[in-house]
């Protein structure tokens, strides 16, 4: 029956498929949507780079057939910052998990958002540390169980869109792995956005999150998203908190214009130095 090629073949390292993600994990779906967004935009693949940190989602870099960098835990954003500044003509996408981006890498996230660094950050949020076997994450909802919160979580979790928006991100959206069309469209918009864009993708982790919390499989979580997500484009992200198995508000929350880090750098230095200012890589900003 395999007479033709999978349409994603040019975008993925098919020599590395099957990937390491468990059955009913949602990360593969997020990757699929991202690949579709790249296709939709007809972005030349040599001008895209993916930077990931550590964890299940950290492995995304290894499966996309673009320049891809699998860095250390939490450090994808500063690595991507350096890469973007050195190759301003490229689209640099950080693809990583909630623990990586918001626990160990939280400081880098808020500062990249503050600077309005020209990056797209995609966070697959599965509410848990998957790779290490299901420990408490900064996104684990109150009362959810993990191997390090065996009696139920009593820490307040992050509301990621609210965090991103309040730190200055110019584009903030949240979807689940079920919202494939909307997620793909959001990824397209984010790729074309100047400055810091952020997309949270809520995705099922069947092996350690669903199982420990007796929520069935990843498929059951997808059905839960189907029944319990409320699309509220333009909603105040402050109201998008996520409780344990509660309603999930999804949508595009922020889409605004603001000079990016690179814009501001050129303008500021040109103003101060005049003709003495030599922009990196020449006047076109590209090297």
């Amino acid at each position: 029956m395999i007479t033709k090629e999978h349409p994603m073949t040019p975008l993925l390292r098919m020599d590395r498929i099957p990937h390491i993600w468990c059955p009913t994990c949602g990360i593969g779906t997020a990757v699929s949507c991202f690949a579709a967004a790249l296709k939709q935009n007809e972005i030349p693949l040599e001008k895209v780079a993916i930077v990931s940190g550590i964890g299940c989602t950290g492995r995304v870099a290894g499966y996309m057939k673009v320049d891809s960098f699998h860095t250390t835990h939490g450090r994808a954003i500063p690595f991507a910052t350096g890469l973007k500044l050195a190759r301003p003509e490229m689209k640099i996408v950080v693809f990583s998990g909630d623990g990586d981006l918001f626990a160990i890498g939280g400081n880098h996230f808020i500062h990249a958002a503050r600077r309005n660094m020209d990056l797209t950050v995609i966070c697959v949020n599965n509410f848990i540390y998957g790779m290490t076997g299901g420990q408490l994450a900064p996104t684990t909802p109150l009362s959810a169980k993990s191997t390090t919160s065996p009696y139920g979580n009593y820490e307040h979790p992050f509301n990621l869109p609210h965090l991103a928006a309040s730190c200055g991100a110019t584009y903030v959206a949240r979807w689940t792995a079920l919202h494939i069309r909307r997620l793909t469209n959001s990824m397209s918009e984010a790729l074309n956005k100047k400055g810091f864009s952020f997309i949270e993708v809520i995705a099922p982790c069947s092996t350690v999150y669903a199982r420990r919390n007796r929520l069935g499989s990843g498929l059951d979580l997808m059905k839960f998203y189907h029944d319990n997500c409320e699309i509220k484009n333009g909603a105040n992200p402050e109201e998008a908190d996520i409780g344990f198995q509660s309603k999930i508000i999804v949508g595009k929350f922020v889409d605004k214009e603001k000079p990016s880090f690179i814009d501001n750098m050129h303008v500021g230095l040109k103003r101060a130095l005049g003709d003495k200012y030599i922009p990196y890589g020449g006047d076109d900003g590209a090297k």
């Binding site: 994603m8 099957p18 994990c25 779906t29 699929s32 949507c33 079920l178 069309r181 793909t184």
Partner: peptide
């Protein structure tokens, strides 16, 4: 939809 939602790139 099946192509997009498949986490394994196994259907198109």
């Amino acid at each position: 939809l099946c192509e997009m939602i498949c986490p394994e790139f196994a259907i198109y």
